[in-house]
Design a binder for these strands. Structure first.
Length: 945
RNA sequence: GCCCAGAUGGCGGAAUCGGUAGACGCGCUGGUCUCAAACACCAGUGGGGCAACCCGUGCCGGUUCGACCCCGGCUCUGGGUACCA
């Protein structure tokens, strides 16, 4: 019987949906396994063949785990808030809620055709009030918490208030924006407003002043990659650096735990390394330098190279540093102010692009605490205000940036490492033997020398000295910054906050969710107000309405804080917890559900989220862990990054100034322009001439210069996108070949983590294979299976397959299991195997990969349960033992002859037999056996000369 | 600049423990079927040579009886990150 995939797939799709085959509930009798894909943003373009790659891989794994007896959670949902929907709304006036709804429906339709085992009853959408209720709730919890460094966890802010009331800041060890010092009397004397402002210094979700790219025309803050040359990418409007009040999350408080946690999880080393770099832990020393200024008698710097203290020849402050103003002398005031002003005007981008050496002397001097030497204090933009203390001690001999600066301004360079040459460049490496410490007696601190120590020892020695003598302290800094949590956008989660007298007030938890107000007009207004200026009233329920009436909205100057929403990562930070208990109306996740499902065992998604989503959700989970909601410290135990599927674009070559198109092989003889051509009218790089003429009006009269009667197109690998005409829609593939073929082919393309171009031309091979597999069960038109005892050959083919597939699935090497299936299929076919025992097992093995065909065959085999209730077969070594072994004979290390010995090579008798055989063979005559090397189970080597 | 990953036929890629390099698929060539084409099926297919055989895993060197695999030094490609002291 013919393999009618259309009929089969349609039928099983309906069956699974109506029977809710993939619905899961907590089952204490089975071990749980949680498989998760990064949920998609439902764009208007729909799915292309690249999107399902990771879903197919994780679906295979989920189905496999289910066959192994696990209770598998495999949910899916939508990351539905985002910019494209809003931009589309502004352009067309269509409400983003409507377009999002439409896009989701389209996605769902496409996903359903591929045969995933998702439990759709658990679907979440980030834009659904029932979902973002818990996003807002988590935000409120963060607002109401601070981070205690002593106990290394989040604590209720009321504990902190208690402490401040009783002790002030005495004995406080907490995460904070800036280090404050005050007495309990001071705190108790503050007004409520002042106290609230002070608490912002400690809250995990806080209002902070940060520098942003502000685009007045668009009425929003832009991310760095949305700004080029000081203009917005969209619209080309000017963008300025602006200090704005924004909601922030104190992610930095968790830096050490985020770093430590990486050792506990099974992620790729490169991804972990990316996160380690992003967190950027550096251990160093903070040192205090006395200055000759009356108003700023001391400056604190941060360094990781305390050992270079004797090489300091100047100091540098960041232009934004608070130290700059008090340390600038009257004579230098004008020059310094001019420099600081100039720096402020340059965007961060310009500073990076144009890395010229610039700076100005403040007029003040600092004193080297070790030598008492006077060193000049400069200001330069190569020092960043946001890292360390915003001030550095410059050691030009051992830091390339300090070196460039010293060379430019002709400042002294003093090398401290034996034998290093600093005439051309600095010696930055942390290696070598330290020298040039001041001679005894000349140092202000008598007897301290670093001479003869290695750099490592010198750093340690200096650290200890600094601490012991009160010159500073040991300090660990992190590069990880707090996350800016406000976006001046409509299509996102509203903050559960109202403002009274300019102060934020949390909305009580029982008033959640705060729903996004419905806005009907999206077009930008004439006055240049942001489109959301139309949202004059928030559609909140009664408990918030009066609050809104009192809220001052001034959206002409700055997009009002009240109207900003949360960023994209808010909704995606805890969605994996929500899936565990997606309909719970009283909690983000119930305790029972969380205790059972715990965390994600396997997470599949793109590596582009390494420093975004994957940091934020780890942070978010750790916070929820601290407040007792998530029982696990890490959200994602194992993570697999799937590569991107690129497009394979096709080109035609138009002879310049004509309507003549020349085939690839002949194009060099003409002056041609390459033009992208729709890959859907090209097959195996051969252009369908009629379809091309019909494709677009301008090609109606096209003429062609052919080679061998064909028009051959050129090709290139590019991003899969509409504008390149290289998008391949999975719907078309499924229509022509079926979902099982698509699944098999996508896995066969190559290693899952590797990026690769899509090439439809290979798909016939996968289709042929499934047809052959199907034909194993048929003799002509009849389903033909018997209960015959399998032969040794049958069993060997089968167990080879069981071994290979089991190993491959565990390793995520799906690409190599497809060939194993192909080989087993042709072997069993050649053996004319009809044995139910063998073929039934083969169906179970293929079920994760090609679920529709497996279900159909399973049912034809007479089962009335689904194939996924079967048990994964056990591999047995005994069926694979080789009856012969290869023996190689080497002459002077070169393998010349191969002969067959007659059994297992690990067996000593066999080795002896092999030797006898070798001796008997004519090519050993006249040679002496040097040694025999046994490689277990495979080969016996006899080395002779 | 720094960090990470990689380099194997015409193409995608196998070789998971240091043991027959190129599995499997695509493409190509020949054949069967067909009036013909497409599909399908069968055979061949790393390069050179009539052959025996020789050469072949980015380049140079090393370890080993034996190296795509291990070690040292390069070249190139892809990704991340960037004045983080």
């Amino acid at each position: 019987m013919e393999y009618n995939f259309q009929d089969i797939e349609q039928r099983w799709r309906t069956y699974w949906a109506t029977k809710k085959t993939y619905h899961v509930e907590i089952d204490e009798n089975k071990p749980k396994f949680y498989v998760l894909n990064m949920f998609p943003y439902p764009s208007g373009a729909g799915l292309h063949v690249g999107h399902p790659l990771g879903y197919i891989a994780s679906d295979i794994y989920a189905r496999y785990k289910r066959l192994c007896g696990y209770n598998v959670l495999n949910p899916m949902g939508y990351d539905a808030y985002g910019l494209p929907a809003e931009q589309y709304a502004i352009q067309t006036g269509q409400h983003p809620a409507i377009t999002t709804e439409e896009n989701i429906a389209h996605y769902r339709e496409q996903l359903d055709k591929i045969g995933f085992s998702f439990d759709w009853d658990r679907e979440v959408r980030t834009c659904d009030p029932a979902y973002y209720h818990w996003t807002q709730w988590a935000f409120l919890k963060m607002y109401g918490s601070f981070y205690c460094n002593k106990c290394q966890k989040a604590q209720p802010i009321t504990l902190l208030e208690e402490h401040l009331r009783t002790y002030g800041t005495e004995g406080l060890d907490v995460a904070q924006t800036e280090e404050l010092h005050f007495s309990p009397e001071y705190w108790n004397g503050l007004t409520e407003q002042e106290r609230q402002q002070t608490l912002m210094n400690y809250r995990l979700a806080y209002l902070g002043e940060t520098m942003v790219n502000w685009c007045a025309e668009l009425g929003t803050v832009l991310a760095n990659d949305e700004v080029v040359d000081g203009l917005s990418v969209r619209g080309g409007f000017p963008v300025v650096q602006k200090k704005m009040k924004q909601w922030c999350l104190r992610v930095s408080a968790y830096a050490q735990r985020l770093l430590d946690g990486l050792d506990q999880i099974n992620w790729s080393e490169s991804l972990k390394e990316t996160q380690r770099n992003w967190i950027g832990r550096s251990e160093g020393t903070e040192m205090n330098f006395r200055t000759n200024s009356a108003t700023q008698p001391e400056v604190t710097i941060f360094t990781t190279r305390a050992d270079t203290i004797f090489g300091v020849t100047f100091m540098v402050l960041a232009p934004e540093s608070e130290y700059v103003k008090p340390l600038t002398t009257e004579a230098q005031r004008e020059a310094v102010e001019r420099y600081v002003e100039e720096t402020k005007k340059r965007t961060e981008r310009e500073r990076i692009a144009d890395r010229r050496v610039s700076g100005v002397f403040t007029g003040s001097y600092a004193e080297n605490p070790f030598t008492g030497e006077q060193i000049p204090i400069w200001v330069s933009d190569y020092v960043l205000s946001g890292y360390g203390t915003g001030a550095i001690m410059a050691v030009p001999a051992h830091d390339s940036r300090d070196y460039a600066f010293a060379r430019h301004f002709n400042l002294p360079i003093r090398p401290l490492i034996e034998g290093c040459d600093v005439s051309e460049e600095s010696f930055d490496a942390k290696e070598g033997i330290v020298c040039n410490s001041p001679a005894e007696g000349t140092s202000a601190l008598k007897g301290f020398t670093l001479n003869g120590l290695s750099v490592k020892e010198a750093i340690q020695t200096t650290k200890e000295f600094v601490t012991a003598n009160g010159l500073g302290r040991v300090k660990t800094n992190y590069r990880l910054r707090d996350a800016i949590f406000s976006r001046q956008r409509y299509w996102g989660e509203p903050f559960p906050i109202f403002y009274k007298d300019g102060l934020p007030q949390p909305i009580p938890e029982d008033c959640l969710p705060i729903e996004l107000p419905d806005v009907s007009v999206f077009l930008p207004t004439q006055t240049g107000e942001p489109p959301l200026g139309n949202a004059t009233k928030w559609a909140w329920d009664t408990c918030k309405r009066e609050v809104v009436e009192n809220t001052l909205i001034d959206h002409k100057t700055v997009f009002p804080l009240e109207l900003s929403t949360m960023p994209g990562f808010a909704g995606s930070s805890a969605y994996y917890l929500r899936y565990m208990d997606s309909t719970n109306a009283t909690a983000l996740v119930g305790e029972k559900a969380n205790q059972y499902w715990r965390n994600v065992d396997l997470y599949v998604g793109g590596s582009e989220h390494a420093t975004g989503h994957l940091i934020y959700s780890r942070f978010w989970n750790k916070f929820l862990h601290d407040i007792g909601i998530s029982c696990e410290e890490e959200p994602f135990k194992k993570l697999v990054n799937q590569g991107m599927i690129q497009g394979r674009s096709n080109f035609v070559y138009r002879v310049k100034g004509t309507q003549t198109y020349v085939s690839l092989g002949l194009k060099d003889k003409y002056d041609v322009t390459p033009i992208h051509v729709d890959v859907n009218i090209v097959e195996n790089d051969v252009l369908d001439l009629e379809k091309f003429k019909a494709w677009r009006p301008e090609y109606k009269d096209a003429e062609f210069i052919l080679e061998d009667g064909k028009y051959i197109c050129g090709w290139a690998v590019e991003k899969m996108s509409k504008s390149m005409f290289n998008v391949v829609n999975p719907d078309h593939i499924i229509e022509r070949y079926g979902a099982d073929t698509l699944r098999i082919y996508e896995m066969f393309l190559g290693p899952i983590s590797q990026s690769k171009p899509w090439d439809s031309s290979g798909i016939d091979g996968s289709a042929r294979f499934l047809r052959k597999f199907w034909n194993l069960f048929f003799d002509g038109e009849t389903f033909c299976i018997d209960d015959s005892t399998p032969t040794a050959e049958n069993l060997k083919s089968l167990h080879k397959l069981i071994k290979k597939i089991s190993e491959d699935v565990e390793d995520f090497s799906f690409n190599t299991s497809i060939p194993a299936f192909m080989i087993a299929t042709s072997e069993l076919s050649a053996q004319k195997c009809r044995s139910r025992q063998i073929l039934e097992t083969a169906v179970i093995l293929i079920a994760p990969y090609a679920p529709h065909i497996a279900e159909e065959l399973w049912s034809l085999l007479g089962h009335d349960t689904t194939v996924f209730d079967a048990n994964w077969p056990k591999f047995e070594e005994k069926y694979l033992v080789e009856s012969t072994v290869t023996m190689a004979v080497s002459f002077n290390g070169k393998t010349r002859y191969t002969i067959q010995a007659s059994a297992d090579a690990s067996n000593e008798e066999v080795q002896q037999q092999a030797l006898n055989d070798a001796n008997a063979a004519k090519y050993l005559e006249g040679h002496q056996i040097v040694k025999v090397i046994v490689v277990p189970k495979r080969i016996v080597n006899i080395v002779i000369k």
